[in-house]
């Protein structure tokens, strides 16, 4: 039952997948709430009036690219390359932070124009769904930052660190998939 043995890895990967599936259900509930409330604009704006598709498309491209760099970080972890992992994780972090900054910009713009989450049922569910995804991204960035420091401080890439990089990659790809659904259901279907 040492940290490096196969059985240990199996249970950790399985457990993390189980967590991701439960998180998927959490987003499922938020998507359901959005589907129910999206028409309840209560005299406020509908999605087509406030969403800027080019801006969100930019956000999407940045997040997709960060998923790609997260994948490269995992590959570097399998090779045992400390430098590769650090480089690609840093790139992923930068892209993730840029995505989060853009989301914050959009939220601020909406709140400033009087279309905050308190405005209507539609905006409540919109802010909560997209904001929960943003909160996950922020948690992922925190995890990434801690991992970068831990790896940078260690002499070489230990199996434990490599596994964490790989699990973080799973988390990041999962958030990417959730975002694809947000992009489609909230933004594309909201504008069209």
């Amino acid at each position: 039952m040492n940290s490096g043995t196969t059985i240990n890895d199996e249970k950790r990967y399985f457990g993390f997948w189980a967590y991701l599936m439960s998180d998927c259900l959490l987003f499922g509930a938020l998507f359901a709430a959005y589907a129910v409330l999206r028409g309840n604009v209560a005299g406020g704006p509908a999605g087509s009036e406030i969403f800027s598709l080019p801006f969100v498309f930019g956000e999407t491209l940045i997040l997709l690219t960060s998923s790609f760099t997260a994948g490269l970080a995992s590959l570097a972890a399998y090779r045992g390359s400390k430098r590769g992992v650090l480089g690609w994780l840093t790139a992923t972090f930068a892209l993730g932070a840029a995505f989060l900054a853009m989301e914050m910009t959009e939220f601020t713009r909406l709140v400033r124009s009087g279309n905050g989450p308190q405005r209507s049922g539609f905006l409540t569910s919109y802010f909560t769904l997209v904001g929960t995804h943003g909160l996950h991204i922020a948690a992922g960035l925190l995890w990434m930052a801690v991992l970068i420091v831990q790896i940078a401080a260690s002499r070489s890439l230990t199996p434990k660190m490599a596994r964490r990089v790989s699990l973080l990659g799973l988390f990041w790809h999962f958030l990417d998939i959730v975002w694809i659904f947000i992009f489609t259901i909230v933004y594309l279907m909201g504008v069209m």
Binding site: A33, V36, L37, N40, V41, A42, P117, Q118, R119, S120, G121, F122, T124, S125, F127, T128
Partner: peptide, 17 residues
């Protein structure tokens, strides 16, 4: 969120359900 930030998931007014 409804109670703390005055949102409208389940309120009777402003499009809650």
């Amino acid at each position: 969120l409804d109670r703390f930030f005055s949102m409208h998931f389940f309120t009777a007014a402003a499009g809650g359900n």
